[in-house]
Computed example of a mutant assay.
Amino acid sequence: MNRPPVVSAQEWQTARDALLVKEKEHTRALDALAAERRRLPMVRLAPGYRFTAPDGSAVDFAELFEGRRQLVVYHFMLEPGSDHVCDGCSSFTDNLSGHPHLSPRDTALALMSPAPQEQISLVRKRFGWTIPWYSAFGNSLYADLGLGGMFGVSVFLREGEEIFRTYYTSGRGVDRLRLDLNLLDLTPYGRQEEWEDSPQGWPQTPTMQWMRHRDEYGS
């Protein structure tokens, strides 16, 4: 297995400084994108959506905000009647262990799936997740927003009883939010997947083939 070249500390610092220039350009570009995102128009949602909370109670959309103005929702792929638990969604949720710094910014975080709460509770208990996970089973939100059964991140804004959809992303837009993959991107070998532009001889496997539920990795 190949490895990066070994150089002097001065040569390393020179290469690191050159890369830092590009990293700062990238950071400024992300800041500019965030500024555009904050200026996106929004869509008022129809009233009447009801969800099932983790405790089995029926709640309206405003209650998902837990008294806050903003809500970030991860759409966990779990279809009604299916016993398939998405390992990508599970590993994403593993990255969400606690979110104490969102509340001071008037923002709540939750999971949502189209499956009934009876299915959701089994998965939640299996992995010990405590993040609120709501069932959209029986309402038309997924159909109305064109979500299908796919994963994604939605952002909503609440003004009184009015709910607005402000943002949605899926695919690589969700990928960039994951701490684990972003940490791997800092390493010499990266995520070690075939799509990556890596030097010849770097370890690589088919995309996401390595990923498992966290209780399936073994030792």
Rank of each mutant, 00 (worst) to 15 (best):
F164D: 06
D185I: 09
Y142T: 04
L179N: 13
S154D: 14
L145W: 02
M150K: 11
D144T: 10
E159I: 02
L184E: 14
Y142W: 11
Y142Q: 05
G148L: 09
L179Q: 14
T187Q: 12
L141I: 14
V153D: 02
E159C: 06
L186P: 03
G148F: 03
S154Y: 07
L186I: 05
S154T: 10
L179S: 13
F151Y: 10
Y168K: 06
E162H: 13
F151K: 05
Y167H: 12
D185K: 13
G148V: 02
L147R: 02
V174S: 03
R178V: 09
L147E: 00
E159P: 04
L141D: 05
T187K: 12
L157W: 04
R165F: 03
F156N: 02
Y168T: 04
F151D: 14
L184H: 14
V155Q: 12
G149M: 04
A143T: 09
G149Y: 13
Y168W: 03
E159D: 11
E162L: 09
R165M: 03
I163N: 08
L177Q: 12
F151T: 11
Y142V: 06
N182M: 15
G152Y: 03
L186N: 10
G148E: 10
G146F: 00
L186H: 14
F164S: 01
F164E: 01
G160D: 04
E162S: 09
G152E: 07
S170H: 10
R158V: 12
L177T: 12
R158N: 07
T166R: 08
L184A: 14
V174A: 05
D175G: 13
E159H: 10
Y142L: 01
G148M: 07
T166C: 07
F164W: 15
G171N: 01
L177C: 05
V155C: 11
M150F: 11
M150N: 12
F156H: 09
L157F: 09
G149E: 08
S140K: 12
L157K: 08
T169H: 04
Y167D: 14
G148Y: 06
R176Q: 09
D175E: 14
M150A: 13
D144Y: 01
L183P: 08
L145T: 03
G173A: 04
G152W: 09
D180S: 15
Y168L: 11
T187D: 07
G146N: 06
G171C: 05
Y168H: 05
L181E: 15
L141S: 08
F156I: 11
R165I: 01
Y168C: 03
F156G: 08
L145Y: 01
G148A: 07
T166H: 01
L157A: 12
L145N: 06
F156A: 05
G173W: 08
R158G: 04
G173Q: 08
G148H: 05
A143E: 09
F156T: 06
R172N: 03
R172L: 06
Y167T: 00
L147V: 01
G173M: 00
L184F: 14
L186M: 15
T169E: 06
G152M: 06
S170P: 00
L179V: 15
L147Y: 11
S140W: 04
L177K: 08
D180F: 13
D180N: 11
V155F: 08
S140P: 00
Y168G: 01
T169P: 00
V174Y: 02
Y167F: 13
I163P: 00
L181V: 14
M150P: 00
L157N: 10
L181M: 15
R178A: 13
R165C: 00
V153K: 00
G171K: 02
